[in-house]
């Protein structure tokens, strides 16, 4: 395939992804505002369109707002996660996502404890987000102190926060009611509450905006941190920004993929894209397209087989990765990312 065709196809893919994302954002916004006159009518039209889609496709998916909500959250995570993941993978920080997911799990546990012992009845996702961001800042602090993203501080953070989470949950067993920890560990399409999907929507828009604004700086510190320091970029600030964005994406993605699988969305589409992309901009574009392919393919597989979406998305993503390796070795320009 020549360069122009390839670029055109990528643009087309990105445009379709953008349209899909806008439609999903619109759905979530309408669901939120459906009490209001015009929004209510539009929201009804959305669900009617979903029912027609079900009728023509012979499915029973799109007519249910909770399914649409899950798919919307998946589509948005499928954009934000590979976007942030592209920088993480090439900074060799692939496991940061996994670590912060475990920190977020501790956040869920702390939220449960908090709501069981006080009058507070906010969302557990809020405590997960707060604790994950604090965890991100702590990892960043440790990395600055030890002068590298060594895997030792990461392993300590990962296991340590999970240990705290399990202790709190064991301590409160019987006291915490109405929450399935399994849903947080393994993810679930059915569990995503409206507020969870709205959180994903807001976080995705924020992450896309921040990356669009700081694309150049993040690229420079990823490619050559020392030269970026000499060019007087505030490397510590951009590193902190990147890791906080990771925490934010992880909390969004955790609802669908579960704590244990969340890193997959940050890493696998990027690994696949890096196999065949010719430059960084193309890597970003392909990561998003592959992430989107994994989410949509994973949902289709999960729904048709009655399986959980988390595992399905990851398996489809790995399928894409293997195809990318095949494609790159065929074109004779195989470049291992290690």
């Amino acid at each position: 395939m020549d360069r122009t065709t390839r670029r055109r196809l990528e643009r087309l893919g990105l445009a379709l992804t953008g349209l899909l994302a806008v439609a999903m954002l619109a759905f979530l916004a309408l669901e939120w505002l459906r009490e209001y006159p015009y929004a209510g009518t539009l929201y009804d039209q959305f669900t009617t369109a979903g029912m027609w889609a079900d009728y023509y496709l012979g499915t029973s998916v799109f007519g249910y707002s909770f399914m649409l909500r899950s798919i919307a959250a998946g589509v948005l995570v499928g954009i934000a996660a590979p976007l942030v993941g592209t920088y993480l993978v090439h900074r060799e920080m692939a496991l940061i996502g996994e670590t912060l997911a475990h920190t977020a799990f501790a956040g869920v546990a702390i939220g449960l404890l908090f709501s069981a012992t006080t009058d507070w009845d906010g969302s557990l996702l809020v405590t997960a987000l707060v604790v994950a961001i604090l965890g991100a800042l702590l990892v960043q602090y440790l990395a600055e102190r030890t002068n590298a993203y060594g895997d030792v501080p990461i392993a300590i953070m990962l296991t340590g926060s999970f240990a705290v989470g399990t202790l709190i949950i064991s301590y409160g067993r019987g006291g915490f009611s109405g929450v399935s920890i399994d849903d947080y560990l393994f993810g679930s399409a059915a569990v995503i509450p409206a507020e969870g999907a709205r959180l994903v929507a807001i976080l995705t828009v924020a992450v896309v905006a921040v990356v669009a604004l700081t694309y150049k700086q993040l690229l420079f510190i990823t490619f050559d941190e020392q030269a970026a320091r000499v060019a007087r970029l505030n490397v510590t600030w951009y590193n902190t920004l990147l890791i906080v964005m990771t925490a934010v994406v992880v909390v969004g993605a955790m609802q669908i993929l579960g704590v244990i699988l969340v890193a997959a969305m940050l890493v696998i589409p990027v690994a696949a894209a890096s196999q065949i992309a010719r430059g960084f901009r193309e890597t970003l574009a392909l990561s998003i397209l592959f992430g989107q392919g994994a989410v949509l393919g994973g949902f289709a597989f999960a729904i048709s087989q009655g399986l959980p979406p988390g595992g399905s998305i990851v398996v489809v993503a790995i399928g894409i990765y293997l195809l990318a390796i095949l494609a790159s070795s065929r074109s004779g320009s195989a470049i291992s990312i290690h």
């Binding site: 090439h90 900074r91 690229l219 990823t222 490619f223 050559d224 941190e225 020392q226 030269a227 894209a273 890096s274 992309a277 010719r278 430059g279 960084f280 193309e282 890597t283 470049i335 990312i337 290690h338």
Partner: peptide, 11 residues
């Protein structure tokens, strides 16, 4: 030369 130039997909 650079820490990532050897592996990162950058033109």
């Amino acid at each position: 030369a650079t820490s990532r130039g050897g592996t990162m997909p950058v033109t």
